[in-house]
Amino acid sequence: MIRDITIGQYYPAKSVLHRLDPRVKLVSTLLYLVSLFLFRSIAGYLTATLFLIGIIRVSKVPVGYIVKGLKPVVMLLMITVVFNLFLKKEGEVLVQVWRLSVTTVGLRNAVYMAVRLIYLIIGSSLMTFTTTPNELTDGIEALLSPLNKIRVPVHEVAMMMSIALRFIPILLEETDKIMKAQQARGADFESGNIMQRAKAMIPILVPLFVSAFRRANDLAMAMEARCYRGGEGRTKMKPLRYKGRDLTAYGIMSAYVIAVVAIGRYVPLKVWIF
C-alpha cells in the first residue's frame, strides 16, 4: 500500500542522533553523501559501511523500518544496475547475450553503484528519521541564511518545505482512499498499455489536486488566523544553539571523512572480488 512509504518520515525515538542540532545532521549527511564518491576500494566501502552501521545503531531506528524505506526506490536501483551492467564495454566479458555483454568492470560498477545508492538513501533517510521536519527546515533556514543577502526568501522556502512534509502522509492516505473509491466504481489501474494506464490516473489525480488546493486554502487561512506574517519579527520555540555534543559530532564526522579518504587511497586492501 502507498501508505507504507516511510522515506522522508520522522521516526520518534530518544537517541543522541535525535537530539543533535539539525545543522550538524544536514552538514554531516551532505559530507557522507560526498564521501561515498571519494573512494573506489573495498577498504573504503568497508569504512563507509561500518560508519553507517554505527550511526544506525546510535539512531535507535529499527533496521526493518529503514529497509522498508528502500522499497519505493527499488525500480530506480534496478535501472541504474542494468545500465551499469550492460553499458560498460571494458574488462573481461563474463556473459554475452545477443549484442549485450556483461563485463567484469560493468559488474563491479553495477554493484558499487547499487551500494552507493542504497547508502545514499539510507544516509539521507536517517537524517529525516531523526529530525522533525520543523527542525530540518530550521536547519536549512539557518544554513542558507547568508542567501538572504541576495534576496532569496529563505524563510518562506523553509516554511513551504515543512508544510509539504507535514501533508505528505495526509495526501498519501487520501490517494489510497480515492483509488479505492474509483475502483469501487469499476476503475481499473492495473491493465492496459502505458497510455491507457496514464489515462486511468485522471480519476485519481483530479480529485487529489482539488483536495490539495482545498487544504492549501484552509491552511493558509489557519496560518493567517494565527498571526503568521513571514519570517520577520518571529521568535523560535526551538532556536538552534550548538552544544557540546554537536561539536563532538562535527569532530567525529571530520574524522570519518579523513579516514575514508585516507583508507580508500592508501590502505592497500584492493582485493577485487572479480
Binding site: I178, A181, R185, G186, I202, P207, V210
Partner: peptide, 19 residues
C-alpha cells in the same frame, strides 16, 4: 469485477472523488 458491479460502495465524503 462482477462483485463490484453488484455491491456498490459509497465512501465517506464521496464528493471528494468527483473528477
Amino acid at each position: 469485477k462482477n462483485l463490484r458491479n453488484e455491491v456498490g460502495l459509497v465512501f465517506q465524503y464521496p464528493e471528494h472523488q468527483l473528477f
